[in-house]
Simulated assay, not measured.
Amino acid sequence: MSHDRAAVAHDQSLAPRSVLAALDIGGTKIAGGLVGPDGALLHQVQLPTPARDGAGAVLDAVHGVLDRLARHPLWPQARALGIGSAGPVDIARGTVSPVNIPGWRDFPLRDRVAAHPAVAGLPVTLGGDAVAMAAAEHWCGAARGYRNALCVVVSTGVGAGLVLDGAVRPGPTGNAGHLGHITVDLDGRPCSCGSRGCVEGLASGTAIARTAHESGWRPAGPDADASAAGVAAAALAGDPLALRAYDLAARALAAGIAATATLVEIEAAVIGGGVARSGPLFLDPLRRHLAGYAPLPFAARVTVIPALLGTDAGLVGAAALALSPGPDGPAAAGRPTAVAR
Rank of each mutant, 00 (worst) to 15 (best):
R110N: 04
A340D: 15
V270W: 12
A22N: 07
P327C: 06
A340E: 15
H10S: 15
R112Y: 01
A7P: 11
I266R: 07
V168S: 06
G326Y: 05
A31W: 03
L283N: 03
A31H: 12
G87P: 02
H3T: 14
L186N: 09
V270M: 11
P37D: 10
G194Q: 08
A203W: 13
G145C: 08
G26C: 04
P222Q: 13
Y293C: 12
P222C: 14
L290P: 08
R112M: 04
P108A: 08
G188A: 10
R277C: 06
L290G: 10
G94P: 00
L202T: 07
M1P: 07
L179Y: 11
A114C: 03
D165N: 14
P219H: 15
A338G: 13
A318N: 05
V124L: 02
T28C: 04
W217Q: 14
G54T: 04
G174E: 02
T49G: 12
A269V: 11
V316D: 11
P16G: 07
P172W: 00
C191K: 07
P222N: 12
H213R: 15
C191R: 09
A252G: 03
Y293S: 13
Y146E: 00
P123V: 00
A92P: 05
V168W: 04
D284Q: 06
R93S: 03
G84A: 11
A176G: 13
A80V: 02
E267D: 15
A209T: 09
T125C: 03
G201T: 10
G39V: 13
V58S: 02
D284P: 04
A220V: 15
G274P: 09
A261T: 04
A9C: 02
P327S: 05
A300L: 02
H181W: 06
G238M: 12
P306A: 15
L263G: 11
G314S: 00
V153C: 10
L66R: 01
A70V: 11
V339Q: 08
G273Y: 12
P98W: 03
R251Q: 15
T260W: 11
G161Q: 08
Y146L: 01
H43C: 05
F298W: 14
A250N: 03
V58A: 06
L281A: 06
G188I: 13
L126F: 05
A136D: 08
A118P: 10
G272K: 03
Y246K: 11
P108Q: 04
L283S: 01
A331L: 10
P330Y: 04
D185N: 10
G33I: 13
D284L: 05
G141I: 10
P306N: 13
A61C: 04
Y146D: 00
S97W: 03
T262S: 15
L202R: 14
A203G: 07
I83D: 08
R71M: 02
I266S: 02
D187Y: 12
D53K: 09
T337K: 09
